[in-house]
């Protein structure tokens, strides 16, 4: 897998990277993917959806899931995404797909009994002007999709601005911030993970070769033996992943278990605040 990213995909990504690294430097008038027609985008989505969901029907929805993303990303390597799923009891899983990224399937979240998936936030890399799709699976096994167009480019290949060693410092460290808890209400939490999430498309400063992809591929949050969610991730997740979610507390600490595609394994435990009246 890594190997293939290290070859085919790299060339594509670098060739398309055209804007949005910092420094006084303008986005060009036309960026990668900017001129594709709606038809071309729809056709590409059909192809991707088939490769992920096979022949299953995906119905459009305006209520079950909504994507909030900046129309024009300020930083293509860190695009904040909010997925809103107000009918949270209906939601079994949600997938985020960034159609024109080299690895479009950015993340899948499968929710467990301790989850309240009404709102989920994460940060992603966007490599092109692209459609972004959120696909939810409801408890009855049906699929629904929502779409959002985002203007950004170069997010996957943007260099990190530090050496690989610096970027890997403290890898696997985690923090959890909890919002105030109220009795009987879900608690909002923000999980921060130190991990470079190398995309495989970033140049190493010393060797001047591409740093191999190294990304969090599995992350599970649970409250006691009840799962909040399991995330399956990929290179489109921004470095130092931050995930904002809500869970139903039962007084037990939250356990986080994360692994990456290079065999890294990390576990941390966090104690939520007691409810206040």
């Amino acid at each position: 897998m890594t190997h293939r990213i290290g070859n085919t995909v790299i060339a594509l990504g670098v060739a398309l990277a055209t804007t949005a690294l910092s420094g006084p430097f303008a986005p060009p008038a036309r960026a990668a993917g900017a001129s594709d027609t709606d038809q071309e985008r729809a056709a590409r989505w059909q192809e991707i959806a088939k490769s992920i969901f096979g022949d299953r029907q995906i119905a459009p929805t305006e209520t079950l899931v909504k994507i909030d993303a900046p129309v024009r990303a300020l930083d293509a390597a860190l695009v904040p995404i909010t997925l809103t799923m107000p009918d949270s009891a209906q939601i079994k899983a949600v997938s985020l797909i960034i159609d024109d990224n080299p690895a479009p399937y950015a993340a899948k979240f499968e929710f467990g009994p301790a989850a309240d998936p009404a709102e989920l936030k994460l940060r992603v890399r966007v490599n092109n002007y692209t459609d972004m799709h959120a696909v939810v699976e409801t408890q009855d096994g049906k699929l629904y999709e929502a779409k959002q167009f985002v203007k950004a480019s170069g997010g996957c290949s943007a260099p990190m601005g530090m050496s690989d060693e610096e970027a890997m410092k403290g890898m696997g460290d985690m923090r959890m911030k909890f919002a105030d808890a109220q009795p009987g209400k879900p608690v909002e939490a923000t999980l921060m993970v130190r991990h470079p999430n190398f995309s495989g498309m970033q140049m190493n400063q010393v060797t001047r070769e591409f740093t191999p992809a190294r990304y969090i591929d599995k992350l599970t949050v649970s409250a006691g033996d009840r799962t909040v969610f399991t995330m399956t991730g990929d290179i489109s997740i921004a470095s130092n992943p931050v995930i904002n979610f809500a869970f139903k507390p039962d007084g037990k600490p939250l356990q986080v278990a994360a692994s990456d595609n290079a065999g890294g394994r990390w576990q941390h435990s966090f104690t939520p605040p007691s409810p206040t009246n």
Binding site: M1, R4, I5, T8, V9, A11, L12, R44, E47, I48, S51, P102, A103, P104, Y105, K108, A213, D217, T232, D234, I235, N261
Partner: peptide, 9 residues
């Protein structure tokens, strides 16, 4: 799920 590439267009 692993990274997969849609054909380079």
């Amino acid at each position: 799920m692993t990274a997969f590439a849609v054909h380079p267009r």
